[in-house]
Nucleic acid binder design. Structure first.
Lengths: 329, 329
DNA sequence: GGCCGATCTGCTCGGATGAGCACAGCGGGG
DNA sequence: CCCCGCTGTGCTCATCCGAGCAGATCGGCC
């Protein structure tokens, strides 16, 4: 395949894709047979000269989804594209929107859905449409902030999701982390709390996000941990938290003592769940997302393209000509 | 066409373009007939959800070319795409390369080619392939720098183009602009110079670029004009220079006195030429390019996509969703 | 010079696709 | 209540296009 053919490929591609000519017409224009034109187009496609992009907020990246499912043994994956022009803040919205779609399309329809809380989950709640399902019981699976600057975020998330399905919300009335083990044990043995945790443990579907182990964690913001605690966690290998529990790169609890003071469902319940949907986006959460998918904490992952590429160990934006220099084809 | 169909379009497009499924298969997956799928794909294309880009240094934008030919009554236009990732400096190279292609494909093959000089033309000279034509006589059509920091650029351009066609170069041994009118008249009446200008006037093809009327003009760099002269020219409506002569937005000479001291072919010779090829790129040259195409100074324009869009009065990067807000479809 | 394998070219054939048409559902107006 | 135009759907048919095959061409090697 010499240079001349390369130029012809490009000319043919222009006529075919930009000008909507038929291969036969292109053959006449360029003085070639239509089969030659077909072969040129095939080679142009194969060599990556032709890039087809689907420009839509709801578009997905099916190839990456399949790769994730394959690589990490998931039941399902949803990957939303992030074009150059998509702002960081908008990515969360789009991932949340995709998660809402995914929830809406779940079959069988969930009867009891256990959820965590946070910025991402609130976005999912907002993105869900009225009547996304019928009469789903929403139950919180971990303790949360009761009073902070965005007071009631956790509760609002659960209530919103429940309202939109015409079902009820069961809130877990407990702090996320308690100072003393005894307090935690006694709260957990309280009939109300125990009942709620039982309900959560019996859920058929789990939906949660994850937090990165950084100084901007919601746990620090809410005062459950301070910066020194976080540094210590990081020093011991923490990559982030899942429903309030800090894990390392292998998905193991980093600090058993801290974990014992954390109110909520144990992680093994997620691992044994038939359906556990993790909704995670943002580069700072790559390590925790990796820990989640490799340690079986979720059956489905909803995320963004950059995350998917990172998880699969690929360069973030595989442009054809940069790809050549990076991967030495 | 409601929102539901819009989402289906996107899903269908993903399966069709990213996953290489057949429309029939997509029909099965989405629970639609193959005809419905076909219609969805057509609407997705029509609504701009599907963007097909040809990623290649030699690619062109045929649609814009046709629009330019149509709008400005040109015989030919060549527009090279500028993707997001193409650096400003590379654009000139690509335009030059396209100009070289265009020259090589000219029929009938030029016998005498009159050229100007400058950064762009030098790039064209370098981009030309050996044997791009056979025995073309190259002749300079305007005076140029003889000694400046890049000494001999003007001469090198002509010589290079000539060498690659196996023809000869005829240089115009004169400054671009003279201080006194008498000097200019006497130089022009010199037998050698007059002969060269006659030769240029008899060329069958003209090739030139243009300069913007800015402080970084080659005329200032070479000392023919100073910044005050330029300010005065701009004040009087100058948009740039064509073969050394400053014109306004209507293509008229801005300063007849200055023009009288400028050595080279008069612009009307370009207007009456059978083939005059202008090679222009860069946003700062939009005004001068516009003056050129509207006042009939060229029969063919070789330029970049941003320039073409500017000339046609379009937004620079017509993304589907921004286009909606800007042009109110 | 002549043989041979590799590559390229042009073709047949069947699947994929788009244009155009007939019909169903729907809503408004008489 | 019925008629009628409009939109959306499923189908027929002609066209387009890609897979696969036989002959042509070319370069390497003896």
């Amino acid at each position: 395949m010499n240079l001349d053919d390369e130029l012809l490929s490009v000319r043919a591609a222009e006529l075919y894709y930009d000008e909507d000519k038929t291969q036969d017409e292109i053959g006449v224009i360029l003085g070639l047979t239509r089969w030659k034109v077909g072969r040129l187009l095939a080679s142009a496609k194969q060599r990556g000269f032709i890039r087809i992009e689907i420009v839509h907020p709801r578009a997905r990246r099916l190839g990456l989804e399949r790769a994730l499912v394959e690589r990490f043994g998931l039941a399902d994956a949803v990957v939303v594209p992030v074009g150059d022009a998509v702002a960081e803040s908008e990515v969360v919205e789009r991932v949340a929107s995709a998660a809402a779609d995914h929830l809406t399309a779940l079959r069988p329809v969930p009867r009891t859905l256990a959820i965590s809380w946070g910025r991402t989950l609130l976005a999912v709640a907002n993105a869900l449409g009225d009547g996304w399902a019928a009469g789903v019981n929403i139950v919180q699976m971990n303790g949360g902030v009761s009073v902070n600057r965005r007071s009631g975020t956790a509760a609002a998330t659960a209530i919103e999701i429940a309202r939109k399905s015409g079902g009820g919300a069961t809130l877990l009335p407990s702090p996320a982390i308690l100072e003393r083990l005894e307090t935690k044990l006694s709260i957990e043995s309280d009939r109300t709390v125990a009942g709620i945790l039982d309900l959560a443990a019996g859920a058929d579907t789990y939906l949660y996000s994850a937090g990165a182990a950084t100084a901007s964690s919601a746990h620090i913001e809410s005062g459950y941990l301070d910066v020194d605690d976080m540094d210590e966690l990081i020093r011991r290998g923490a990559v982030g938290d899942v429903v309030g529990r800090y894990i390392d790169a292998d998905g193991m609890i980093v600090d058993p003592a801290l974990d014992a003071r954390t109110v909520g469902l144990p992680l093994d319940r997620l691992r044994s769940a038939r359906r556990a949907i993790a909704v995670i986006s943002g580069v700072d959460k790559v390590p925790v997302a990796h820990a989640i998918v490799t340690s079986g904490l979720c059956t489905a992952l909803v995320t963004d393209e950059a995350m998917a590429n990172a998880l699969l160990g690929l360069p973030e934006v595989p442009l054809p000509h940069t790809a050549r220099t990076r991967t030495a084809i």
